[in-house]
Write a protein that binds this DNA or RNA. Structure first.
Lengths: 370, 370
DNA sequence: GTGAAAGCGCTAACAC
DNA sequence: GTGTTAGCGCTTTCAC
């Protein structure tokens, strides 16, 4: 039944509200017979504590907001899954309110400037447009942790992987496979995002560390972060006569688009062109060929982010802590492992059954830095 | 500043709480000077109405739960996106709490039997395991609308597409392409889900309507609803000597797995084998070849579901209403349109740029039934 | 070990 | 037009 209140239970059992509350919360100092009597009343009336009443009294809502551009992007849907599981496993058992910013500055502002306060205890936000100054100004006193390599003011906590290092390692892996003309695919046509910027820096470092020249022609931007745009951009580059033997992609969507453009032109992967993507989304295991990818440790990312958020919610008020979590290269058919690769390499090529979730196919693991 | 209450604003402005409340809610009967004075106090103090206090008083939380198996499945992440947009556009401006059931009966029970009441105003649930009796019993008085073709008690509202009809149309399209050995791929090895059951029925009807024999060999089940499992199952079927010239897939994940299995064996798509998937997920446009797919009108699904949910929240207490929304066949390279196809067909093959979201590539549209 | 009562922040019916 | 006041359902001191 709806509308059964704590008071109703108390009256029905002939006790005070406090006693019922004690039973509901399994407080130790309630006598066994009393506990049983109250429990019977609860069962008979079908009492369910009202969440809102409780929240008003305690000041905690048990809700956190998870805000990012768009759940449809596989990286974000996988992140949402990991975060909601991790949040539920938290001591406080948080639940997740989904907020999409559409990747626009208006969307990001809207998420931060909600007209109501107190709905959520805290927020996990992956920004991409707002400046760090604006983030610092707007978030007010809402406990918050930033996700990803986007803008982040020093005053706010943030968790990310080292994008420069990851791009360097991935690019070096392609070089170690014997590739000499490694192109970068998928950054914005204009107005480079923070993400693209860092990955390109790493790409360049990887080239340089292997003594490969950096050619401007080998930078292939796309009109939008989407696989169809990447397919078109890569196709046009090829048709324009640009030649490359490997593709370092900004993300898996770009990589999947590239795969298609190569297929359409009868170019063999990885024989003619090796491909590495980024994010290690579930699809990578079943594309043809399966896709090697930079695999951020999202479980660790979620864990660390929620841990810091919980501390903020509990009142921690220090300066922003910036944490790095590890990543690895998940090697599959599109850019297999090889003896030349540095580090402990395990080749997961052609294992359609690889436990991708657990990162079982990975290699070149990079450990958590403090 | 945090912790500024309505009362603080009232005192600061030297008026009553009611007046402040009137200003906050833009009530008409407040004099202009008074409104300005109060607004100044609000701004000076940085007042934000507290969501929980408001919710306790009004009894509405402005939150709805969206519960399904797993956000990582593209169909669900796309659904989450559509629902959260549609919910925000609602008169009441609902926000969405994400709940995952993991596709297990325990998960579904947990979602329905949350120990707290009142957190959300209503729930959109896509069940797959629970019996309709259990759904009816457990949901209690929580306003609820069921999504999809799973179990649904007559007492509860539900929105879905006509799975049997859609499978029939898709199968007929394959037959009209001249295919005579059309296999069905991707249903459960044992314990058929409601979804698979209905799609297989439609598949069979499609075969029969075109005078094609139904062969048990052409039913290719998979160990799990996942593309790697489908790749393995289709590969094994081929290796076992099963021959087919078309694949009707239970969902796009199965179709993508099938694509891979066919590629690995050098089988040409669609020349040797045509493929149709189900759900029309975004990836379908960039697979190689791009994938034809049954495209449910999820925008309409979300709209109708939220409309009915809003009515339930507003107290409507009639018997369960079961609504169908339309679907279409999004035709791409893996099973292109053709002159033989019935209905208004538009061939979207090879249009990597097709506006898949808008279903622009579709054909054979089926209209909303009452 | 149990009960009484004062809020938590807001809304809305009712009075002025 | 504006102010008063009684809740919404729960938690939580503080007495008993």
């Amino acid at each position: 039944m709806a509308g059964v209140r704590l008071q109703d239970v108390a009256e029905h059992a002939g006790v005070s509200m406090k006693t019922v509350s004690n039973v509901v919360h399994a407080h130790p100092n309630v006598s066994a017979p009393m506990r049983e009597r109250v429990q019977r009343a609860i069962d008979e009336l079908g009492y369910r504590p009202n969440a809102i009443g409780r929240r008003l009294a305690t000041g905690r809502t048990g809700l956190i907001a998870l805000a990012f551009a768009d759940v449809r992007l596989p990286y974000f849907s996988e992140l949402a899954n990991v975060v909601s599981k991790a949040a539920a496993a938290t001591g406080s058992g948080y639940r997740v309110l989904l907020e999409e910013t559409e990747g626009t500055i208006e969307g990001e502002r809207a998420v931060l400037s909600a007209s109501e306060a107190g709905l959520v205890d805290g927020m996990l936000l992956q920004p991409s447009q707002m400046s760090s100054r604006e983030i610092a100004e707007r978030h007010g006193d809402l406990p918050m942790v930033l996700l990803g390599e986007g803008p982040a003011p020093l005053s706010v906590d943030r968790v990310m992987i080292d994008n420069v290092a990851a791009a360097t390692v991935a690019t070096e892996h392609l070089a170690d496979l014997g590739r000499t003309r490694i192109a970068f695919v998928g950054h914005e046509n204009e107005g480079l995002s923070w993400t693209s910027r860092q990955r390109i820096v790493g790409y360049q470092q990887g080239l340089e560390s292997r003594g490969l020249p950096v050619e401007h022609d080998l930078l292939i931007p796309t009109g939008a972060i989407a696989s169809d745009e990447a397919a078109r951009a890569v196709g046009e580059a090829i048709d324009r006569g640009i030649r490359f033997d490997a593709l370092m992609c900004r993300d898996d969507l770009a990589a999947i688009g590239a795969l298609r453009a190569l297929h359409e032109r009868g170019i063999s992967i990885p024989d003619d062109v090796a491909v590495i993507g980024w994010d290690n989304i579930a699809f990578d295991a079943t594309t043809f060929p399966s896709l090697s990818s930079v695999s951020p440790n999202t479980h660790e990312l979620a864990r660390v982010a929620l841990e810091m958020l919980a501390e903020r919610i509990d009142g921690y008020d220090g300066i922003g802590r910036h944490r790095l979590v590890d990543f690895e290269l998940a090697l599959r058919e599109s850019a297999p492992g090889s003896l030349q690769a540095s580090g402990a390499t395990s080749d997961a090529a052609s294992d359609v059954d690889a436990d991708v979730d657990a990162g079982a196919s990975g290699s070149l693991s990079h450990s958590l830095s403090a």
